[in-house]
């Protein structure tokens, strides 16, 4: 039942092209199946959400991270997660004055390496929707409700890729039914 430990050192890593292409194949297939970008965006987000819910466990198990003390701490840990899973280091910037909102700016995006959006999709399709989904799902499992969306995307011709994250509220433990 236990996973056998792997021999070679980097067998924990997968070729990033395989990842990009797998994701690309999935999006292309979904566009064929739906023909409605809105629906595809939504589904990608939902897929990301369920990936995030499971990825957070993997992340916590591997890193010994403790609970975040504030949103700045959270931002740092998200950065760490990006480094760990995608080997990229987005920079954290554009804090709102109230401190409940920040941006992640990517210089490159492994999801979009071979990707070119045809003009007909360039405004409608949110190609990377899976990333906000992952972040939302992961943070929800540590009791933070956030909103997450792309403000800029190089795929759509913007100069950089910027992901905005806004803290909505802390989720409280609910008392299970039937207990005091």
């Amino acid at each position: 039942m236990s996973r056998q430990t792997n021999k070679s050192a980097d067998s924990k890593k997968v070729n990033n092209e395989l990842f990009t292409l797998t994701y690309g194949a999935l999006v292309a297939q979904m566009l064929k199946d739906h023909e409605n970008c809105e629906e595809v965006n939504k589904q990608l987000e939902r897929m990301g959400y369920s990936i995030g819910q499971r990825l957070i466990e993997d992340f916590l198990a591997r890193t010994n991270c403790t609970r975040c003390v504030d949103l700045r701490d959270t931002a740092e840990k998200i950065q760490l997660a990006f480094k760990m899973y995608l080997t990229m280091s987005p920079s954290v910037t554009n804090w709102s004055t109230s401190g409940d909102e920040f941006s992640l700016v990517f210089d490159s995006n492994p999801l979009t390496e071979f990707v070119e959006l045809p003009d007909s999709y360039s405004t409608m399709l949110k190609y990377c929707s899976i990333i906000p989904g992952i972040i939302r799902g992961a943070l929800e499992m540590v009791q933070m409700e956030v909103m997450c969306w792309f403000v800029q995307d190089t795929l759509r011709g913007d100069p950089s890729t910027e992901l905005r994250i806004r803290m909505v509220k802390k989720m409280e433990d609910a008392i299970p039914v039937g207990e005091n």
Partner: peptide, 17 residues
């Protein structure tokens, strides 16, 4: 190509596929 996507992430993506 670099090999730099963590296998857990790939595994989860593939499971969604």
């Amino acid at each position: 190509p670099r090999s730099d996507i963590h296998i857990s992430l790939y595994g989860l993506l593939f499971s969604e596929v």
